[in-house]
Amino acid sequence: MLGEINLEKVGISCFFLSYLVAFAFEVTRLIKKSRTSRALMLLFAVAGLCAHTIFLLVRSRAADLPPLVGSQLDWMLVLAWLMVLFFLVYSLLDESSALGIFFLPLVLLIVGSTYFVGQEPRAVMEGQHSLKMAHAALLVFGISGVVIGFVIGLMYLVQHRRLKRKHGQAGGLSMPSLAKLARWNRLSVMLSFPLLTAGMLTGVGLGLYSQRTPEPVQLLDPVILSYGVVWLVMAVLFGWLLRAKPTAGKQVAWLTIWGSGFLLLTMIGLQVLNMDSWHS
């Protein structure tokens, strides 16, 4: 019982600050290679992830809903959780990777933006539990892929700029080669677009199903329309990628950044604006 009370005291600020400290240690590694800084960065990131997990579990138990469908806040925190997990696994595999410099600010942005979104568990439409879970999960995985693509695109451009400007590697951090970044960039879009499409389709299915319920979803809902536009942008990017030459690494990076940046802005913007919508 005592354990439960203590766990409930874990708040967003706990893991937000942990990630912030981890980011600060990561920045020091830009200046000088240091095993201590890396160890402390990993320690704070792992501590943050533990607090993050506990927070999601406690909220899920209190609302009696899975975190993905609990509220806007829970959904965004799951997205950030997936990103931290990806970052930690990669950092453990590659000791000198500069991934944290690019990844942690985005995690902080997403976690920070949850201060402005609705925290109350939303009223959930009755029935079709599996479809709702699939809709939320596909979207969160798809968007995670897009965010990872955004970071990789950014890393590609920074690495490309360094090589064109003929600057040697500085400090204790390095970035993957252009060839590897281009491959990952392409892969992230190739994987995330089908997930987003499947997420959209399950959403449309849910919308149609809701027409038979007492509270039907407005298919012209601004949030749904905005996501539709984002999906179209991603579809164009996906189509272009299928036809693009493998040597067009820099163009792929720029397009991924524009496409995924637009998605991120739309997603965070809509959640923060807290529009009167079925999704809100």
Binding site: L163, S174, S177, A179, K180, R183
Partner: peptide, 8 residues
């Protein structure tokens, strides 16, 4: 510093 940053 340069070759390995371009090629995998």
């Amino acid at each position: 510093d340069f070759g390995k940053s371009i090629f995998d």
